[in-house]
Amino acid sequence: MSKAFFIFSRLKKTMAAIAAVGFLFALAVPAAAKENTDVLVGVKILSMLNRELPAPLVMGIVYDPGNSESKSSAESIKAVLDAGVKTSEGAGVSGRLIPLAEIDKLSQVSFAFITTGVKAQFDRIAQISASHGILTMTSDIECVRANKCILGIESQNVVQIYFSRAASETAKINFDSAFIMLVKKV
């Protein structure tokens, strides 16, 4: 009886642990998957830039190695880009992981995707974007609302694009006027 109880107790703990891992996994994986689709929308938006980005197109993926959500998102995005993503004009886009500690490398990429969970470096990201004219896009709409990122992208259910005119003007990034009419300005 006691052995059975022990086994049952262990089983419960195991089940609970599996459930907890599953729950965390469920939280983490959809976030990554969500940002993957946001990135694909972001690549399409490149055709709306008023100036052509020089080839080769490299997307900087800014993440916080200490934040598991941010890290897994970044790795997932990199994997998606490595699998082959092209702009509507047919140019290939490669990904480059940029941990927060190396944030200055943001100046070396064509454009950047800011993963969720790097709020502490919003100011620095905005500075580099402004000084080097780097287009920044993110799934973290807070970054756009704070006028630190230029574009915020939501692609679940209904596509919504958020736009910070202030960040855009500071970085001297201009878009097709029709596109700007369709986005939500913060």
Binding site: V41, K44, M48, I161, A178, F179, L182
Partner: peptide, 10 residues
């Protein structure tokens, strides 16, 4: 650019 905009906004 209707095509590109439709592609972006689905």
């Amino acid at each position: 650019n209707y095509g590109a905009l439709q592609d972006i906004f689905d």
